[in-house]
Amino acid sequence: MAQTGALGDKIFRAVLLLAATSILLIVAGIFVMMVQNAMPTIGRFGIGFLFGSEWKPAQEEFGALPFIYGTLVSSVLALIISVPISLGIAIFLVEQAPKGIAKPIAFMVELLAAIPSVVYGLWGIFVLAPFIREYLGPVLQGYLGFIPLFQGRVTGIGMLTGGIILALMITPIITAVVRDVLEAVPTTQREAALALGATKWETTTIVLGNAASGIAGAVVLGLGRAIGETMAVTMVIGNSPQISASLFEPANTIASLLAANFAEATDRTYLSALIEIGLVLFLVTFVVNAFAKILVMGVASRNGKAA
């Protein structure tokens, strides 16, 4: 005897399955298409592509190192600035602020994530860069100028500006995840600590300890975003493929390189080189995001909540 509605069930399920599978196909497609189109330079330059420090498309010389360096340094800079601030906001929202204040602030921080990248870039060029050139740069140089990081000419366009803009952009993401992670820590833990005579702040440190791997996940997630962030960085970092110790000097990231040059790359080898460096970016962000997800999932499941 056939099940009533069995045919409908089958068709319905098949359609949904197809849609869900499209997500796998997209990711597989990204990988396959990029590998295929990067084949010319993968074959020609091999692993040396990653370590070459000269990028001269006209001479068919492609070394990805300056971009990898720029991506790493700007991302780490962003984390150094953003993580303490994000943690502060999340702790304030979950552990300290009364509901009436926490809600609107959480909402505003979320709005920060809704502003498009290109708008941050615009703001970076016309507000942040002049601010760094006129005020922040000279002050830093005045006090810390003996460190190579803060030497050189301050134009306002360069690594530091890129890092600051990135920090601003990843703050809402890190804050949101840390908030979720802190909220997943059971109230009973806080009560247990308070009942032992711990102060409010000591209690918070216990909560933070409990949420440590989730917070690490949030930081890694922020790193993933910073690595891949494109427009805003492109607009303020100066797009110069050099490795310089100074944070005031212009630099370049993988994503910025792609944004600024891809449209003009008509030459087959040049295009292949750009796609290959894009492939590096894809693989790195994929792994970083997967790692972040695993870290965050750990905390959520330990406390009996779905991620």
Binding site: I26, M34, T230, F262, F282, T285, N289, K293
Partner: peptide
């Protein structure tokens, strides 16, 4: 898992994907 990871992939990579496709 893959969907969550795809959400975090830079959108410029999606641009390259569609460019090749």
């Amino acid at each position: 898992f893959v969907a969550d990871t795809l959400i975090g992939i830079p959108s410029i990579i999606i641009g390259i994907f569609i460019y090749t496709l």
